[in-house]
């Protein structure tokens, strides 16, 4: 065995077994676990147009975020994360309002869809509150996007013509 191999083996043996994360991860994990329980009651998206819109939005937001991260030298990460949350929320609100206007006169397939929408609003608010304290938490950002997507899916689904629901 060469000197290099000996030293490498020794260094591998001495490597630290643990490395603590720099931020508190538990809060996001707890929300993620609760979200797993909640998602079972929310209809899943299977609408091609919506999926395409969601993918486009995600791509634009991701590209913008990636660009910002590459070009800026932030003293703190908070402004970038908060800007992303704000951008996501604004885009979602515009999309949601546009759909609600579009379906103003369309009959809804279920009676309690507005209550479901309000529950999802509450979930989004809780996630945004958590993001205020931890703006760059990727798991929370993904959860927020999922809740937004569930709202869009809900609106589309309850207002879709009957022939599309067969």
């Amino acid at each position: 065995m060469s000197k290099f191999e000996q030293q490498l083996n020794q260094q591998l043996h001495d490597l630290a077994k643990e490395k603590a994360p720099q931020r508190d991860l538990w809060r996001g994990i707890e929300l993620g676990i609760e979200h797993q329980h909640d998602t079972g009651t929310v209809p899943q998206n299977r609408h091609r147009r919506l999926a395409a819109v969601a993918a486009s939005v995600a791509l634009v937001v991701s590209l913008s975020w990636y660009g910002i991260q590459q070009t800026s030298v932030p003293a703190t990460d908070h402004p970038t994360g908060q800007a992303l949350v704000k951008a996501l929320s604004n885009q979602h609100e515009q999309q949601k309002q546009a759909l609600l206007v579009q379906y103003t006169d369309a009959p809804a397939m279920t009676e309690n869809w507005e209550a479901q929408l309000a529950e999802l609003d509450e979930a989004a608010s809780a996630i945004k509150a958590a993001l205020k304290e931890d703006p760059n938490n990727g798991a929370l950002l993904r959860m927020l996007q999922q809740v937004h997507q569930q709202q869009i899916t809900l609106i589309e689904r309850v207002h879709a013509p009957q022939w599309q629901q067969i």
Binding site: E18, K19, A20, P21, Q22, I29, Q36, A139
Partner: peptide
Amino acid sequence: YVGRVHALSYRLTADQGLAEDATQEVFI
């Protein structure tokens, strides 16, 4: 176990933020 999970995630990703996100994903 968070220290062990994060250590492995960090060595695989070589990125602090990505490793922390992956650690959250692991525990979720």
